[in-house]
Simulated scan of single mutants.
Amino acid sequence: MIRVDGWQTARQEQQLIEWFGHVPDFLITLAADYCAQCSDAEFCAPKFTKDGMPRLALRGHDVEKFIGAVMRAIPDAVNPAQKIA
């Protein structure tokens, strides 16, 4: 959610504090174009726990994107997918 660079992190934290009064534990960002065309059932698809926290899950696509980012950032890194096999 928050960028790594020092001044960008400080600016984003400042903006979140201005909006919400604190830096939230999580922030859900929705694509306006999707929200404009989806049904109520599709829009309400996210699930939450009894405590109000989002029920989060990792999907294969998320893992593939992460591995790709690591491999681009650290070319010498051992591909984690090879260790799983």
Results as ranks from 00 to 15, higher is better:
1 M>I: 15
1 M>E: 08
1 M>K: 15
2 I>L: 14
5 D>I: 04
6 G>K: 11
6 G>W: 14
6 G>F: 15
6 G>V: 14
8 Q>K: 06
8 Q>D: 07
8 Q>V: 13
9 T>K: 12
11 R>D: 13
11 R>L: 13
11 R>T: 12
12 Q>P: 05
12 Q>T: 10
12 Q>F: 00
15 Q>V: 04
18 E>F: 01
18 E>P: 00
18 E>C: 01
19 W>A: 05
20 F>L: 00
20 F>M: 05
21 G>F: 01
22 H>M: 03
22 H>A: 10
22 H>P: 12
23 V>P: 04
25 D>N: 15
26 F>H: 08
26 F>I: 09
27 L>R: 10
27 L>P: 09
27 L>D: 05
28 I>P: 00
28 I>N: 08
30 L>I: 15
31 A>Y: 10
31 A>S: 11
32 A>E: 14
32 A>K: 12
33 D>E: 11
34 Y>I: 09
34 Y>N: 09
34 Y>M: 04
35 C>M: 15
35 C>V: 11
36 A>N: 06
36 A>C: 02
37 Q>K: 05
39 S>E: 07
40 D>T: 13
40 D>P: 03
42 E>N: 14
43 F>I: 01
44 C>W: 09
44 C>N: 06
44 C>D: 11
45 A>E: 09
46 P>M: 07
46 P>Q: 02
47 K>C: 04
47 K>I: 02
47 K>F: 06
49 T>C: 10
50 K>I: 12
51 D>M: 12
51 D>P: 04
51 D>L: 14
51 D>G: 10
53 M>P: 07
53 M>A: 06
53 M>W: 12
55 R>L: 12
56 L>P: 03
58 L>Q: 15
58 L>I: 03
59 R>Q: 07
60 G>R: 13
61 H>S: 15
62 D>M: 06
62 D>C: 01
62 D>T: 01
62 D>K: 02
63 V>W: 07
63 V>L: 14
66 F>G: 03
67 I>N: 01
67 I>L: 15
67 I>A: 00
67 I>Y: 03
68 G>E: 06
68 G>Y: 00
70 V>A: 03
70 V>I: 13
70 V>K: 04
71 M>T: 05
72 R>A: 09
73 A>D: 06
74 I>Q: 10
74 I>H: 06
74 I>N: 09
74 I>E: 14
75 P>Q: 10
76 D>W: 05
76 D>K: 15
78 V>L: 02
78 V>K: 11
79 N>C: 01
79 N>Q: 05
80 P>V: 02
81 A>D: 05
81 A>W: 01
81 A>R: 15
83 K>F: 00
83 K>S: 04
84 I>H: 09
84 I>E: 13
